[in-house]
Design a protein around this nucleic acid. Structure first.
Lengths: 103, 103
DNA sequence: CCAGGTGTTCGTTAGTTGACGAATACACGA
DNA sequence: TCGTGTATTCGTCAACTAACGAACACCTGG
């Protein structure tokens, strides 16, 4: 099995993170993951195709916003890295998520 | 003279704002404007061409992050709309700016 | 009025993005 | 082992983006 790449905290880039959050679909995915940590990729409400969704998860993961673990049956468990990101860029993600879930 | 478009606070969109901040050049411009409110477009340190810079200012303005006023000699005075944006999306811009100026 | 300074607009170009379906990889249960 | 469920990868496509120079618009000073 190919290991999923996750950036270290020190390698996080603010622009990359903001870019990841700038897409409405990804922002909603991120908010959902923060609400229900551990959700698998297939449990998100969306009209998009699986491949499109997979690409969005990849962007979120490689930006450092989420961690994807192997789950049962080749599924992926999605966890927020909010606390870690917070330590690097204090307040950014929490403020974005708060505004995102409000609207 | 063509009037410069500025979105109303109620029309601000979080994704649009994040997209505007996601570009390193624009983020630096925005930080500079917040540090030195009222700067004209020509006073920013950059290697980019005038036309490119102008396009970036347009993105910032149309996202609602800055206000551009007519200054002396056809110049543009750039003001932050941080306080207004803050009222709509509390904490978002201030946190981003804080992280941006740190790095 | 003319020249210089400040920005915008236009047209172009190369690179990136988001979307999709089809094909593939992998784990698990029958 | 064979199918089923889950998710990634690949190739394609249209749309968007950032960058540039050239041309234009506008104000101000001489």
């Amino acid at each position: 099995m190919k290991p999923l790449f996750h950036p270290r905290i020190d390698d996080l880039d603010l622009s990359t993170i903001l870019h990841a959050c700038a897409d409405p679909t990804r922002l909603r995915l991120l908010a959902d993951i923060n609400t229900d940590p551990g959700k698998t990729c297939g449990t998100f409400e969306t009209e998009l195709s699986k491949s499109t969704l997979s690409a969005h998860f990849k962007v979120l993961r490689e930006s450092g916003l989420i961690r994807q673990e192997l789950g049962p049956g080749n599924s992926r468990l999605n966890w927020p890295r909010t606390a870690e990101v917070q330590s690097r860029f204090p307040g950014v993600i929490s403020a974005i998520l708060k505004s995102a879930t409000r609207s």
